[in-house]
Every structure is written in C-alpha cells, then in structure tokens.
Design a protein around this nucleic acid. Structure first.
Lengths: 197, 197, 197, 197
DNA sequence: TGCTAAACGAGACGGTACGTCACGTCTTTGC
DNA sequence: GCAAAGACGTGACGTACCGTCTCGTTTAGCA
C-alpha cells in the first residue's frame, strides 16, 4: 500500500503536535477559561497565526487535542456478559475523566455551550461514535436474549452516559465501582420490587 | 423593645432586579459567552460598579438570575403514583429548559467548569435542594412499597437527572414525553427480560 | 451697621480645617494629580459631600489651603534700600516654595491651566495682592529717586516674579541668594556695558 | 559595509502621525485635562494599546506632539544687534504661544508638575536646547562688546524667558511688542536712574 | 429642655476613563 | 511559501474617582 501523497507546502506536523500538546497541558493544568490562544502559541513555541491558520477557535483546538486521547475508550469489550462489559467500559471512561483529560473535556463542553459549530463537531466526532459502539454492543445483548427485546436502546444509552456527564460537569466526583454497580443494577433490574433476581 | 436598626445605606432593589432581568434576557438571547458585564450594565441602565459591588463574576450574576426562575420546578407532586409524579416533574424541568432559561442554565454550567466557587454555589443552591426534594419523594415511595427497599436512591436520582443534563449540555433536544416514558420504564422495570409487568 | 446675619446651621469649622490640612498634607506629599477628593475626605475624616458642599473643585480646595500659608509673604519691608528690600522678599518667597507649600502651589497652577475660574481666582486672590504690594513698594522707590521715573513698573514686576515662577514650574531648583543677586543686578543696572557702578 | 539590521516588526509611522496630530488638535481645542487618551485614540482612529505601547502617559504624547511644533522657534537670528535679535525671537515665541500650541504647552507644563519623568524630559528636550541657543547668541553679544563681560548669562536668560512663562501660565495675555520692549529696556539698561542712553 | 432643621459621616448610585489583556487580522523577515 | 514574530484596531476586563443622591445621626439655636 503506497504512502499517501503529502501536500507540496504541507503543514508542519511538528507544530501541530506542539500545539495540541500545549493545549492539553495548559487546559489540563489551568482550566479552559484561563488559557488563551496566545498562551498556547507561546507554550508551543509557535506563531499565533499558525493556530489561526488551521483551527477556527480555541474550542476546535481543544476538540482535536481531546480526540487523540479518547480513541481507546470507544472500544467495547464483548465477554458475553453485557452488564460486566458495560461496567468495564464505564469504569474506563470514568477513570480517564479523572485525569487531565477530564479538565480538557469539561472545557470542551463549556465551550460548546456557546459555539454551535463546536457543539456539532463534538457530537459528530466524539458522542456519535461512542453511542454507536455502545448501541452495537447492546444490540448484541438483545440478540443473545440478555436484554428485553422491546427495550428503548437510545433511552438506555442516555441513561447510562447521562450519569457520567452529570458527574463530570457538576464536579461531583466521578463514579466509582460501587456507584457504577448501583446504576447498572437499577438500569437492568428496575427500581420496582418483586422482580425475581 | 426598640425596633431593629435598618441598614443606613442599603442596596437598590430596583438595580438588582434590572440587572438580573437584563442577564436573563441577554444570555437567553445571545448566549453566555457573547454577553459581557458591560452589556448587562448597559442593558440594565446601571453602572458597572454596581454589578461588581454585589457579585464577584458574570457567573454569579447568572446564578442569581437563574435562581429566581427555578423555584417553581423544585416542587414534587404527590399523587400516590411515584412514576407518574416523576414524569410530571421531569417534564416540567425539560420544558422549562426549552425556554430562555435553558440557555441561561447552559451558560451557568459552562461558567462553573472554570470557577470552583461558582460550581460550589451551583451545587448548594440549585442541585442540592432539587436532589433533596426528589429524594424525599422517592423515600415516600419506598415507604409505600412502590419502590424496592434496597434501592440506591442517590443512584436512581443521578440516573434520572443525568439524562436531563446530558441532553441539555450536548444540545440534543430536551426529552419529550415519549423519551421520558422510555427512561422511566427502564429505571423502574429494568432492561433485563423476564420481569412480569 | 448691623452684624451680618449668621447662618442658623452654620458650617463646621473643624471639618473645614481638617479638609484644608489634609489637602496640604496629601498634595504636598504625593503631588496634586495623585490626590483625589475621595482621598482628602478619607484623610480628613469627612464625608465627600461636605467638600462638595463648600468647594466646586479640588483646585478650589487647594487654593483655599494655599491661601492661609501665603499671607505672610505678601508684606514688603521698607528699609529705604529698594534693592535690599526686594532681595529680602524674593528670598522669602523662594524659600517658602521649597517647602510643601511649593508642591501645593505647583498643583494649583497646574489645575488652573484647565480651569478658567480657578485661574481667575488665583489671579484675584494671590497674584493681584502680591503685585499690588510690590508695585506700592516700587512706587515709593521711584518717589525717593531710587528708580528711574520712566520705568515700566509692570514690566519690572513681571521680570522679577517671572523668574520665580519659571524656576518653580520647571522644577529647576528655586533661586538661591546669589542667583537673586544676579537677577537684581541685571534688573537694576542693565546688561549693557558702560554704566558706572 | 553591512546594512544595519532593521527591526523586523516596526511601528506604524502613519499611526504615530495620527496620534500626535489628534493630540495637538484635541488638547489645543479642549484643554489638556479635558482630553483623555481614549479620546485621542478615537480621534486618531487608533487602538488605545498603540498609544500605550509607545508612550508611558498622556503627558509624554503631548511632549512629542509639541516637539515637532517647536523646532522653528529655537533658532536665533544674528543681525549684529543683540537687543533687536532677542526682540525678534521673543516675539516669535510669544506669538506661537498665542496659537493652539500655547494651550498644548500649558497642558504639558501642568502635567509635568505631577510627573518628574515628564518634567525631566521637558527640560532635556525643550528647555535646554532653547537655553543653549540663547546662551550662544548672548555669548556672541559679549564677544562683540554689546553686553557687559561680567554679566550672568543664566540670570539674564531666566529673566527674559521667565516673563514669557509667567504670562503663559498665569493666563495673563502673552507679551505684545511694547511689553517686550519694556522688558528689554529694563534688562539691558537697568532700572536705576543716571545711566546715559 | 425639648424641637427642628441644617450640616454631617457614610456610602450606594450612574458614569467616564484608566491601564491591561486577549482577540483575530495583517505585514514583515527568515528559513 | 509556510512559519516566527509581533504591531495593529477592537473591545472587555476590573478599578478608581467623579459628582449626585439618599440615608440615619449629630448639633446648634429657638421656643
């Protein structure tokens, strides 16, 4: 397979990396609002124009910076036990959000509140792939009879991931193991009494 | 008994109202980031210093402005049917967040991402009272045998309200009736098959 | 002749003194521009309104504060030697302007540059009385034959006091004894050669 | 010979000119105190930062603005008649100070009262060159025997220019022809009687 | 001696300008 | 011809004072 042909006056990969790294570092350490594009350029040893040339806004840089840190988490395991697999994945996400990546993500969501294009990009590039992967895993669970066939998959996904966002954005601490268990217990067994377990 | 001595130089209620009203209007119309304190002062016909005298930041003004719009929603009905009552309340919240108040709330949460004191105030003044009211209503449901006695109430609350935040902050449209039904169905009956309904 | 009717609720002499004293102290120490009316009120332990009630501007307060420090200097001695008497008086003025009073005076003149009413008041209350006193002493000198009868008295006064202002306002150090002698030598004997001394 | 390395990012001559022109216009028309840096920036069509980048204060801008208007006046004619030449120059200065330049100069001196660095700059860039030029012309007069050899040149200069400052800063009208003649008469022939003319 | 009205301290108010920071654009120089 | 450097016009930041306007609280003179 031949290498993709590079642009003749191609952008500097080195600058790109430096910018994204500086973004993660600064936003992770100081918080999104406290970081200016000028500061990122300074930290990355790059001219401001080089940022403006390739990204429309600080939020867009942040999204790109985040993107590379998030790839791993989208994968869903499939051990045959749907609840255990969800627990594994949710725990992974919760833990990742405990690190600097969490601060960056908080910043991204904050920025997206006032920037529809950024919000759109966030949905397209982060949320939708994750939801799709989750939905596929849940569908497998339905096929195998682990889940009720009439379940509203979107509702289930919203329920499970809503908790994580709620915790992240309200700055209550991320879910720990027990809390994830409690949430999964309710989601899969229901809150009403009388169900045989 | 002498009358309590009133403050000699008390703050102007008229200015306070004008500032909060201007904040709701501007943030609701233009979005949080697009609104400056100068614009709020201008719109309210007030000096900037009058804002800075009484609030530490734009976020704090926003929280106060929101506070007054939110009082109604905290109340939980008690008709004897816990699921129906939750549906009523969640629908009320979802609908309120469809209005300008929703934009204001998005702004508040965004601001709180970079301002720990504001985040704290948000939790204390908005989240905690709402959660408490919800918990009380759920506790009543447990007493009446409508809910499993061993349920994790906090987990249930996180689950239900997490969905709302998830929708609000990701700018997917707020929950409609059917979606609320689907969420409640899962939360109260569980996703696993085999439960008699 | 009936006594002037005093105000029934007359102004506080104590406050007046405190304000003028605070003005001399602050302006003398920090410089005119660096002192605000709020600072004077603070320093004097007085409400702002008490200043605004009695003076139209900071410059007016400064003029009043100065006025009391300047009374002594207007007096001209008359020992029979016009040059010696002028030397005595000019030296007194120059020395006074070395103290805090000098800084206050600099402030007054600066303020008067942008405030015609203040400039007018300065002329009427400070300059004119001093010039008048000087002119009277010079007239005596003319009568006694110490001065040429055809001399332009105003020109002579301008010349002598112009030097003092020039030094004060350009912040070159005030005239010392020798410099005053040199100036008087020129003014009274002329710069052209050939005059018998 | 290698070219001197030019600054890579040099300042805009156009903005500099616009700022100085706006300063002369505004200060000349409205008075120094009445003009803010914001107004100068507005009038010049320039950002405030561009002023603050290159000047430390309004006074410094004013000094630069003045500087260019003052170059012509420093020159002393030399017709061989020292008194006539001084009359020519003093009249030129007095007339210049009747124009907008006079208002600007009043503002500069006022500002210098509270700003030692500005005062220093004023002395170095305006006063000293003028005094030097005057001293040179007077020295020529001494050499030619027009002036007494033992005259105190600095005292004579202070005397002559003190009058002009006195008039300018006290807002009595600038010297006219006759007044300059009177002053020169005294300075060069003295106030005492008996001198042959 | 108690009443009344001004002057008082305090300080909130609507404003203007301050001097700083960051924005996003533009231009110049160097690799 | 992209990248660094950084000046530019713009505009918001948060602060300091402006001069005006209440507030209660002295404090005098008149009753």
């Amino acid at each position: 397979m031949p290498a993709a042909s590079p642009d003749p006056h191609r952008r500097s990969e080195q600058s790109r990396r430096a910018i994204l790294a500086a973004t993660v570092e600064l936003v992770g350490d100081l918080g999104y609002e406290q970081v200016s594009i000028e500061a990122i350029a300074r930290q990355a040893g790059v001219g401001k124009q080089t940022i403006y040339r390739w990204w429309p806004s600080k939020g867009a840089v942040t999204l790109d910076a985040l993107d590379e840190s998030l790839d791993a988490v989208v994968d869903f395991p499939d051990t045959g036990d749907i609840v255990a697999d969800l627990r594994t994945q949710m725990l992974g996400v919760s833990r990742l959000l405990t690190t600097r990546v969490g601060r960056v993500y908080q910043g991204l969501v904050a920025a997206a509140q006032s920037d529809p294009r950024l919000s759109r990009a966030h949905l397209d590039r982060v949320i939708e792939p994750a939801v799709l992967a989750c939905r596929r895993r849940l569908a497998t669970g339905v096929e195998r009879g682990e889940l009720r066939a009439d379940i509203d998959l979107q509702g289930l996904i919203d329920l499970l991931y809503g908790v994580i966002y709620y915790r992240l954005l309200l700055h209550t601490r991320p879910l720990d193991d027990d809390q994830i268990d409690a949430v999964l217990e309710i989601a899969f067994s229901g809150a009403r009494p009388g169900r045989p377990r």
